[in-house]
Amino acid sequence: MPDDLHESALSAHGPVAGVDEAGRGPLAGPVVAAAVIFDPARLPAGLDDSKRLTQARREALAAALVAQAETGIGIASVEEIDRLNILQASHLAMCRALAALPRPPAHALIDGNLVPKECPCLATAVIGGDARSVSIAAASIIAKVTRDRIMRDLAQHFPGYGWETNMGYPSKSHRSALQTLGVTPHHRRSFAPVRNILYQAHLPSA
């Protein structure tokens, strides 16, 4: 279970924000990042890596976090993903999440092994951070819940791809729908399964 040891070690210098993203692997939709600053006396019970929680538990914790902590959301669009690549777009979303916090943190704990080059404050990369740091775990929950809501909304406008359940990830049904229904404006053209379909569509017919 995640704890607050990383945050406690840095808190003497000012607010510490945990940062994580959701949506690096999907074929469709934006990448969403969240940043969270906790009041140490108001930690919601049951915080964990978002991937270990049920949807209902994530939704409940996200609501509690928004009410009890300082939060910021950052989004990088499909166009930015295709232009920059997914890693750089994820880092852009993280920087936007930090900038969206009600107050600037003194230090950020970033999930992963790299710190965004444009990070607006001092930062430390924490490998497996969503399972080790409470603030990163909280950020992972908010990022996941926010992105899932975006994908469920997009699914209403682009039915048939199953985004309301696969959230844009390359499930068998999503790949099949790409073949039969084609590529939407919300698909990542730089990702091979989408790029290959676009390539095939431009091949001259026999």
Rank of each mutant, 00 (worst) to 15 (best):
A125F: 14
L65W: 07
Q68W: 07
S140I: 15
G128W: 11
I142Q: 09
L87K: 01
T54H: 01
L98G: 01
D153Y: 06
E118M: 09
R57T: 14
S140F: 13
A108F: 04
A125M: 05
D153W: 10
G112T: 07
T54P: 02
R96C: 08
H91T: 02
L61M: 06
L53P: 03
S135A: 15
V126R: 00
L109T: 04
P120Q: 02
A108E: 04
A64N: 06
S133Y: 12
G74F: 15
R83I: 13
A99E: 13
R132T: 14
I136C: 06
A62F: 00
R83V: 11
A108T: 06
I110V: 15
A137R: 02
G74N: 05
A56S: 14
A89W: 09
L53E: 00
A137V: 07
K144I: 03
L61G: 03
N85K: 00
T54R: 04
R152W: 09
A138E: 01
D153E: 14
S77C: 08
R103P: 11
A76M: 07
L65D: 04
A123E: 05
D130K: 04
A143H: 08
E59C: 04
R152L: 07
T71L: 13
Q55V: 12
I73P: 04
A62I: 01
A67C: 09
T146W: 03
L101N: 06
Q68G: 00
A67L: 12
A69H: 10
Q88S: 15
R147S: 05
V145Y: 03
A63K: 13
N113Q: 12
A108W: 04
P102V: 12
R57E: 12
P116W: 13
G74V: 06
T146Q: 05
V126F: 13
C121Y: 11
D148F: 08
A139C: 12
S140Q: 10
A67M: 03
P120S: 05
P105N: 10
R52Y: 13
A69I: 13
R52H: 12
R83C: 14
V115A: 02
R58W: 11
E80I: 11
A123R: 03
L98A: 01
P105F: 14
G74E: 09
